[in-house]
C-alpha cells in the first residue's frame, strides 16, 4: 500500500517530462476540444497521429497506456454499439430491432476513437507530470480567477498538503490495521455489515490522528511565518524555454491541420 502515488506519475526522462507543466495542461484542454471538433476522417487522422506521437515521445511503456485504456474499455464498447445500431439513414442490414447504417458505422468509429484519444491525451499528462508540478501549474494557471474571489492560493495549498500527507496516512492506516488485527480484529470475513463495523477500530484512530496532525501542521506553518498567499513568493519560477515554444508551434500546427481538414476536405456524412 505504501507505494501508491496519486495520479499515475511515471518518472523517466523525456521531452514531455521536461515541458512546462502549465503548457501541458493548456495543450491537454486544447487537444480535448480538438478531438471533438473532428468532422471528417482526415482531421481525425491528424488527431490520432498527434496522440500516437505524444505517447511515443513520453517514453512511458505502451503497456501503461493500455492499462489506463482497460478501465474504460466497456464504456467505449457500449457507446460504439449504441451508435452503430441507432444511426440515421438507409439501413445496410436489419435484424430484429437492430439496424446498421453507414452513418451508424461512421459514428461508432468516431466515438470510439475520440474517447480513446481523450484518455490517451490525459494519460500523457498524468504520466509525464508529477502531482507536485501539476498542483503548482494549476495554481499559476488559475491565478486570474482570484478576481472572481476564488481562493486560488488556498485551494492549491490544500492540494499540496493533501499530496504530502497521502503516503503518510496510508502508512498509518497499515499500522493501525496491523495493531487491531493483533488484538484479534477480523477484517477479512463476515457479512458486509460486520465488515463495515470492523473498520471502526481503524477509522476512529485514523481520524483522531489526522486531526492531531492537522493541528500540529498548523502550528508548524504559523511558526514558519505562513500568513496565506499575500506577499508570498515562490522559489520555483516557471519560465517557458525553447522546447516549450517549439511544442507550442507543433500544437498550433496540429490545430491548424484539423481546422484545414475540416474546411477543405469533404465531410463524410
Amino acid at each position: 500500500m505504501r507505494d501508491v502515488t496519486l495520479g499515475q506519475y511515471f518518472p523517466c526522462d523525456s521531452v514531455l517530462h521536461r515541458l512546462d507543466p502549465r503548457l501541458k495542461i493548456v495543450s491537454l484542454i486544447g487537444f480535448i476540444v480538438l478531438t471533438f471538433c473532428t468532422f471528417n476522417y482526415f482531421s481525425l487522422a491528424v488527431v490520432v497521429a498527434t496522440v500516437i506521437a505524444a505517447v511515443l515521445l513520453s517514453r512511458v511503456p505502451v503497456k501503461m497506456y493500455l492499462k489506463s485504456l482497460k478501465v474504460i474499455i466497456i464504456i467505449v464498447i457500449i457507446t460504439s454499439l449504441l451508435n452503430l445500431f441507432y444511426g440515421q439513414g438507409e439501413p445496410i442490414f436489419e435484424w430484429w430491432i437492430f439496424k446498421v447504417t453507414w452513418a451508424g458505422i461512421h459514428n461508432a468509429i468516431f466515438v470510439c476513437l475520440r474517447i480513446v484519444c481523450l484518455i490517451l491525451f490525459s494519460s500523457v499528462l498524468t504520466f509525464t507530470t508529477s502531482p507536485n508540478d501539476l498542483t503548482d501549474a494549476l495554481e499559476r494557471l488559475m491565478k486570474p480567477l482570484t478576481i472572481f474571489h476564488i481562493k486560488v492560493h488556498e485551494i492549491a495549498m490544500m492540494m499540496t498538503i493533501a499530496l504530502r500527507f497521502v503516503p503518510t496516512l496510508l502508512e498509518e492506516t497499515d499500522k493501525i490495521m496491523a495493531a487491531q488485527k493483533a488484538r484479534g480484529a477480523d477484517m477479512e470475513s463476515g457479512s458486509l455489515v460486520s465488515r463495515v463495523k470492523a473498520l471502526i477500530p481503524v477509522l476512529v484512530p485514523l481520524f483522531v490522528s489526522s486531526f492531531r496532525r492537522a493541528y500540529e501542521l498548523a502550528v508548524a506553518m504559523e511558526c514558519r511565518c505562513y500568513q496565506g498567499g499575500k506577499g508570498r513568493t515562490r522559489m520555483k519560477q516557471l519560465k517557458l524555454k525553447k522546447r516549450d515554444y517549439i511544442s507550442i508551434a507543433i500544437c498550433l500546427l496540429a490545430i491548424a491541420g484539423v481546422v484545414l481538414c475540416n474546411i477543405f476536405l469533404p465531410q463524410i456524412h
Binding site: P131, N132, T160, R164, A220
Partner: peptide, 10 residues
C-alpha cells in the same frame, strides 16, 4: 507533522 511540501527542497 511539520513538513508541508511533497518534495524536500520545496
Amino acid at each position: 507533522n511539520q513538513l508541508v511540501a511533497g518534495i524536500v527542497e520545496e
